[in-house]
Simulated scan of single mutants.
Amino acid sequence: MKLNEFVSNVKGRPQTYFGRRKMSSLFDIGFFIEGYEYAKRTVGQEDGFDKFFRSEFPKFVRKKLNDDPLNFEFWFETIDRYANDSDEAANIFFSFFEEFYAMYESKTE
């Protein structure tokens, strides 16, 4: 399954992946994606978008939020700092992801 399909599935049916109707925090999907991507790299199934996501999505998030962290943090930690609650954090992530994926698609056409 491609990362964009996976994220779309999680957005539509988080209970399938997390056992509840919604994520308790953005860390749920953040760490899940990190593990998912690591597994794909380990078995040699990483595609172009996976590589692009890993290298560019954290920068994209910081740019969208006008953030310049002093220390390393995961992209989901950055979003979480800016959100008022876990629902808003999830909405920000899904919105950013869709925009980021559309940008990638336009570059590869």
Rank of each mutant, 00 (worst) to 15 (best):
R81C: 08
S25P: 04
F6I: 10
K22P: 12
Y17S: 08
A39G: 15
E5S: 08
F32T: 15
E105W: 05
E34N: 12
F27R: 05
W75M: 12
L70M: 09
P14H: 01
K107V: 13
V43G: 02
K107Y: 10
K2Y: 10
E73H: 00
F96T: 09
L65M: 10
W75N: 07
K51P: 04
N9L: 13
D47M: 02
E73S: 07
G44H: 01
F18H: 02
E37V: 15
D87R: 00
R54M: 07
L3A: 01
S106T: 15
F97Y: 12
F72G: 06
F72D: 08
I92R: 02
F96V: 07
K64G: 03
F57Q: 04
A90N: 10
E34P: 01
K63E: 15
K107F: 11
E88L: 04
N66K: 05
L26D: 03
F31V: 15
T16I: 11
R13N: 15
N4G: 00
Q15G: 13
F6N: 01
R54V: 12
A102E: 15
N66C: 06
W75F: 14
K51F: 12
F74Y: 13
E109D: 14
K63C: 04
I29G: 02
F52C: 01
F60A: 08
M23H: 08
K64C: 07
V10I: 12
E98C: 01
F93H: 03
E88S: 10
V61K: 00
F93V: 07
F60P: 09
L26S: 02
Y38W: 07
D28L: 01
S86K: 06
R20D: 14
P58D: 08
E56F: 11
V61C: 02
E99R: 04
G44E: 05
A102Q: 13
F31I: 14
F52V: 03
G12I: 08
G12L: 09
N84H: 07
N66I: 10
I79L: 08
I29Q: 01
R20S: 15
L3I: 06
N71E: 15
F6Q: 04
F53L: 03
D80W: 10
G30F: 06
R54K: 04
T78W: 00
Y104R: 01
F53Q: 01
Q15E: 15
T78G: 01
E73N: 03
E37L: 13
D67A: 12
F97G: 03
D85E: 05
F76Q: 03
M23G: 12
K22F: 13
F6P: 00
K107E: 15
K2R: 06
D85I: 07
G12V: 08
S86Q: 12
I79G: 06
V7M: 00
F94W: 09
A102V: 13
L70F: 07
F32P: 00
G30H: 03
F53G: 02
N9W: 10
F6G: 01
K11R: 11
K40V: 08
G19M: 05
K63Y: 11
L70S: 12
N4L: 03
G44R: 00
A90V: 14
F60Q: 05
R81E: 14
P58L: 03
F74N: 09
T108V: 15
F32E: 15
E98L: 02
